[in-house]
Design a protein around this nucleic acid. Structure first.
Ligand SMILES: [Mg+2]
Ligand SMILES: [Mg+2]
Lengths: 225, 225
DNA sequence: TCTAACGCCTCTTGA
DNA sequence: TCAAGAGGCGTTAGA
């Protein structure tokens, strides 16, 4: 996917320089909307002062509008101590603005404490959207290791993966059927014979085991669009 | 449209109380995913500590997956000085997580400085999504397009419980055998036909599935001695 | 999340 | 066809 484009007016924020220093490649252009573009992502960066100024003179929503016209995934990236910048507006101005931006325009509103963090975030977003994460994310983490785990740890862990099955039920199932393999092979009627498994859990288990997945979320490579 | 539903476990955050005080109506339920639901919007709220804890024990992405399964518009609402909560993790973990959630899961990430602002934000979101802004805005909603949540998460989760099997191998096994049930029923020789499974992994898997545990570590009752 | 270390798998080589 | 070795990839652990 396409790389990073930085709006020429962002130069004096110091962020482009930080990006360059950390080896991020980008081109500088005058963007019609937003400050940073990464593929279909378009980011408007604002300090607290910028933000309240925009709210004050009614430019915030038109700007969001513009952002939406130029990209599918609009972001507002707030930077620094936002609340301190609100000198003469009601407290609810911030939540109100964020709510409207997110609900009506689909704008994501992020916050970073300073411009160095903003640069890190941009660096990450560029990497993720051009190269992906580099691996598929594991859904199950902290497995009991085979050696030096108590006798029933691994089978219990396996069986606990079933929907509606926690530690108690997992043990009950294992006692009843003997092994994880047997549990996984059991018919729903037989599962129900085990304490803690009712009709709902039994059919959820059966469905989970039989389900033939067709698609997995991929994080290894850059997302398509 | 529909009103606000609050997860019962959010009660002690103080936010439901604030909402009630400011006259927002809501019902309390145990939500399967997320903390607040407004129509097709589902919001998971996290403080900095929550966030890093979730990253640390690998629950963040599975949670995001769940969020995506339960709503068309998944939100992550970060609260407070997030970065300050990162005590012992690589600095890039925060931007990395935010970027990944947004890019790969299509989660809309928002930020509010504190829980009072969160309450205001929720109040605004309820109002905005049920009544509109209340005044005329140049409205051009462009929905961020979310790819439909893939259906492989649960089977992958189950199969990943096997020793030596991570995200990659779990998917390979599921593609090869079709369902978790089939994977768990497979003979070691057949497991080996699958990329990523050699003799060691195959027999470790077989052993884990066949093993008949005799003892479980019990924490329910006081230890015997 | 990222980073680093480790272990396993696969493929190639060579006989 | 088999055995051995190098290299790459995937899994794990730790922060
Ligand atoms: Mg700007
Ligand atoms: Mg929460």
């Amino acid at each position: 996917m396409s790389g990073l484009v930085v709006d020429s007016r962002e130069t004096n924020s110091g962020i482009p320089a930080m990006l360059r220093r950390s080896g991020v490649e980008f081109v500088t252009e005058e963007l019609a909307a937003g400050d940073y573009r990464i593929g279909n992502i378009l980011i408007e960066r604002k300090t607290g002062v910028d933000l309240f100024q925009s709210i004050y003179d009614g430019r915030l929503f038109p700007q969001a509008e513009l952002l939406c016209q130029h990209a599918e995934r609009p972001f507002l990236l707030l930077e620094g101590d936002i609340r301190a910048a609100n000198t003469n507006m009601v407290e609810d101005a911030l939540p109100g603005a964020v709510s409207a931006l997110s609900i009506f325009w689909g704008v994501q509103v992020l916050w970073m404490p300073d411009s160095a963090s903003t640069a890190s975030l941009l660096r990450c977003m560029v990497r993720h959207s051009t190269e992906g994460l580099g691996y598929e994310v594991p859904l199950r983490v902290k497995k009991p290791k085979l050696s030096a785990a108590p006798d029933g740890a691994l089978p219990q862990f396996l069986v606990e993966g079933l929907p509606g099955v926690g530690a108690e039920t997992a043990r009950a199932l294992l006692r009843h059927f003997g092994s994880a393999k047997a549990v996984f092979a059991a018919a729903p009627e037989d599962l129900r014979k085990c304490a803690g498994v009712g009709p709902k859990t039994a059919s959820a288990i059966d469905a989970a085991l039989r389900h033939q997945p067709t698609a997995f979320r991929s994080t290894r490579a850059a997302p398509d669009r």
